[in-house]
Structures are given as C-alpha cells and as structure tokens.
C-alpha cells in the first residue's frame, strides 16, 4: 500500500466550484450593465433623444448636426411633443466626385409622450452647435410643493 502524506493528497474537485464561477461572472456582468448602460435604449425613430427631469422642468436633447433652426418645427399638443424637420443635402458643386457619403439628407418626424403635464406658454428651444435643447416647464399642479411645518 502506497502511503501518501496528508499534505500531498490529491486535491478533490469541488463539484460546485463551476457554478460558483458562473454566478460570479453573472454578477459582474449585471454590475457592468447597471453602471455603464443605465437606461440606454435604442431609438428606432430619428432623432435619438435624451430626456432629463428636475424639480420644475423637463429637458429634452437631440443631436441634429447640419439642421438649420428654420427647418425645425417643434409643437406640443396636450402631453405629446412633436419634432418635425428636415436636413438638406449640402450644395453640390460641378464636377464633384464623391468618395464617401455617410451623412444623409431627408425628413424626420418624431412624437414623444411627455411624462408630466407642462406649461404650454413656457417652452424654450435652442439649437447650439448642432445640439437641440428643449426646456419645458412643468405645469403648476405637478410641481413639488414645499409644505411648511408649523410648530
């Protein structure tokens, strides 16, 4: 009979080790998704929008490079914001040969449901460096109200 010293005995495989490894991997994956993607959604209608909310306003941002302010039409009806516009192709000169055409020209229209009621008289929009920012003030009835405590 061969004698094996206690410390040199073969390492027994833990049958659950593989599951443990998978669990750790999944934890890591979900952690990364939470921290990085947040609520990143893929827009299906142009233009992709980002929306922010604070105590008294809603802010909507969209990247619209090459779109002129006069070609944009923003309207709010009830709680639906509609964004219409067009991007013109830049003027073509004679005898131009294109090597790459990745920037498209065309029309777009997008409607988005606003999460709260807004004050229709206090809507501002600005287009700076190709980024559109629409600021909508929330209607008075949905604004948070400070309640003072009387003692």
């Amino acid at each position: 009979m061969a004698l094996i010293r206690f410390t040199e005995r073969p390492h027994f495989r833990n049958p659950w080790a593989e599951f443990e490894r998978i669990r750790r991997g999944l934890d890591e994956l979900s952690q990364n998704l939470i921290s990085e993607g947040k609520m990143h959604m893929h827009a299906t209608v142009y233009p992709p929008l980002n929306m922010y909310e604070n105590a008294d306003s809603l802010i909507i941002k969209a990247e619209l490079p090459g779109v002129q302010a006069e070609d944009l039409d923003i309207s709010v009806e009830g709680d639906t914001l509609t964004l219409l516009g067009k991007r013109k192709a830049h003027q073509e000169e004679e005898q131009t040969s294109y090597h790459r055409r990745e920037i498209e020209a065309g029309n777009f229209s997008r409607a988005i449901a606003l999460p709260t009621k807004v004050d229709l008289d206090k809507i501002t929009a600005k287009l700076v460096d190709g980024v559109l920012t629409i600021t909508l003030t929330k209607a008075d009835e949905v604004k948070p109200r400070q309640i003072s405590i009387t003692t």
């Binding site: 827009a43 992709p48 980002n50 909310e53 604070n54 809603l58």
Partner: peptide, 10 residues
C-alpha cells in the same frame, strides 16, 4: 444638466 436622466437614446 441639472436633473435626473429619464431616457437615454444616445
């Protein structure tokens, strides 16, 4: 931007 992100598409 002062605010909470509600929707991020880009």
């Amino acid at each position: 931007i002062d605010g909470r992100l509600l929707l991020q598409e880009y």
